[in-house]
Nucleic acid binder design. Structure first.
Lengths: 145, 145
DNA sequence: TACAATTAAGTTGTACGCAATTTAATTTAA
DNA sequence: TTAAATTAAATTGCGTACAACTTAATTGTA
């Protein structure tokens, strides 16, 4: 029937990765929507909370996103009052983004999101750690190829 | 410094999933581009190769995609001569998609793609199997929540 | 110092992915 | 048996992602 078993969906690692990422991202929607946030907005805010202020380039490195994605996201976050942007005085090419007070306040409001997402991921803590480790092994492996 | 450690990117499973899926999908681009295919086209073709002919709905179930995504993808594949579409005679609401001869020929041309992708995923066979199993455990777990 | 090369953001164009809606066909139940 | 409910695809609109390009600032170098 099938001469190319390697070309079956069920034999490829990429498909469950793709399907899993899509589905888990979708689970964030109802949790973030009350704050007018998307998943992309949320991960941007997470980096800003952790680093305080950083350039679009550094934000992009942290998230594997480029300015084509980040510029409109940051503008939207700014329009919603969560983020402020300013030109770096050291280097006028760079734009620095940081949370506003309202942006910092979000942290508390969203503090239960990870747990709520966690509750629909039916893995034991060890399995979750294992999955996490394997994913980073794949990501790190990409860097030298 | 950070009162909400659970809100750090590095403590969330979703981010490596999202980043890994994006990066691995990007690796397909140069392999598929010579045939005018995207990753989405490729996974659609994989299901069609396996099943021969099926409705848009069934294709959507196999790939977790809806008609909003699939209709334009199938039209593009049809325009490129890889797929034919026809109304079901049993149920005039349904559209059946199947590979054309040119679509079947693609199978051989793309037969080395899985291996080439595999070569940039730096996991041992056991690790790959483990990752695969964990991803499907997460996906299956979503279905009852 | 001046000019070429590089770098940073932003812009443009294309392709998803999905929610919501529309249209048409089929099923159900009154 | 007809009217209501359901179902299938297609359409519309929005938000990513990302390649390719533009513009402006900075750096390297002749």
């Amino acid at each position: 029937m099938n001469q190319y078993p390697q070309l079956k969906l069920e034999n490829q690692l990429c498909f469950p990765l793709y399907a899993c990422a899509k589905e888990i991202t979708r689970r964030y929607v109802p949790l973030l929507e009350p704050y007018n946030l998307t998943y992309t907005h949320y991960i941007v805010m997470m980096v800003l909370w952790e680093k305080g202020e950083l350039t679009v380039t550094d934000l992009g490195k942290a998230l594997s996103l480029d300015s084509g994605t980040l510029t409109p996201v940051l503008k939207k976050l700014e329009a919603n009052g969560y983020v402020k942007r300013r030109r770096s005085s050291d280097d006028e090419r760079s734009v620095l983004a940081s949370p506003t007070d309202k942006g910092w306040d979000l942290q508390e409001k969203l503090s239960s999101v990870p747990q709520e997402i966690g509750s629909c991921v039916k893995l034991t803590p060890e399995e979750a750690r294992l999955l996490y480790g394997l994913l980073y092994k794949v990501i790190d492996g990409f860097e030298n190829s």
